[in-house]
Simulated scan of single mutants.
Amino acid sequence: MNGLYALKPWYADRLSGVRASLVRREVSPDTLTLAGVVCAAGAAVALAALPSGYSAPLVAVLLAARLAFANLDGALARDTGRTTRRGALLNELGDRAADLIVLAGFLPLAPLWLVATAGLAATLPSWVSLAGAAAGARRLNGGPVGKTERCALVVLAAASGWTTPTLMALTAGSAATAALRLLHLWRDLAPADPTAQGGAR
C-alpha cells in the first residue's frame, strides 16, 4: 500500500546534506513548511498560465521542491529538538493547503465541479489517517495515490494536457487510498477481546 512513499527513506538520505546545512544555519522547520506551500502556489500558477507541455518542467521542479520541503521540515525539527505541537499543526495544515492550492491551478483548465471533487478527494486519505492517529492507531501514509503520486499526476497533466482524465484518475485513486487506509485502521483498531464493548461515539 505504500506506493512511492516506500522511497521516503532513500529520498531523506539524499537530502541529508541539505538538512545538515539547514541545521547549521538554524533555519526554522516552520519556514520550510511555508516554503512548501509557496512552491505549491508557484506550481499552480505555472499550470494555469502556461500552455501544456511548456509548463511541465517548471511544475515538476516546483512540486519536487514542495515534496522536499515536506520531507525536510519534520526531519529538521527532530534533528534540532524543535518538535512542537504548534509545528505539527502547521505541518498538517501546510500539507492540506499545498494539495488544494496545486489543484486550484486546474480551475482555468477543467470544470469547477471536477476540480472541487478532486480537491475533496485529495484530502480524504489524510483525514482518515489523522482520525486513525487520534484513535491511537499508527499514522498511515503512502499510496496507491498518496501525496507523491498526486504530484506525479499533476506533472503528467501539465506535460500531456490530459486534464480531465488526470483529475478523474486523481479523484478515484485518492478515494481508493482513503478506503484502503480506513480498512487497515478498522482492522488495527479491532478489540483484542471479541466480547469487548465499543467506546464512546
Rank of each mutant, 00 (worst) to 15 (best):
L189T: 07
L63E: 01
M168P: 00
P29M: 02
F69R: 03
V37T: 05
R86G: 10
A41I: 06
L67I: 04
N91P: 08
K147V: 04
T33R: 03
L107N: 04
G146Q: 05
N2W: 08
R86H: 13
L170K: 01
A172T: 14
T195W: 08
R85F: 11
A196P: 09
P191F: 01
G17P: 08
A178Y: 08
A179K: 06
A44Y: 08
Y54G: 09
A20C: 04
L22Y: 09
L140K: 04
G119L: 03
G94I: 04
E149G: 00
L4S: 13
G143V: 00
A65P: 08
Y11I: 12
T84Q: 06
N91G: 15
E26P: 04
V45Q: 07
A200Q: 12
L140F: 02
W113C: 02
L112E: 15
L72R: 01
A133N: 06
R66F: 00
R78Y: 08
L63N: 08
A46L: 13
L89A: 14
G199Q: 07
G136H: 09
V27H: 06
L4M: 15
P194R: 10
A175T: 11
W113P: 03
A48T: 09
L183Q: 10
P9H: 13
R85C: 06
R78V: 15
N71I: 12
R96G: 00
A75S: 15
A46D: 14
G132M: 09
T33L: 04
D13N: 14
T84F: 02
G3D: 10
A12F: 04
L114V: 07
G42L: 03
W10V: 14
A196N: 02
P57H: 11
R66Y: 05
A104H: 04
S28V: 04
A192L: 15
R78W: 01
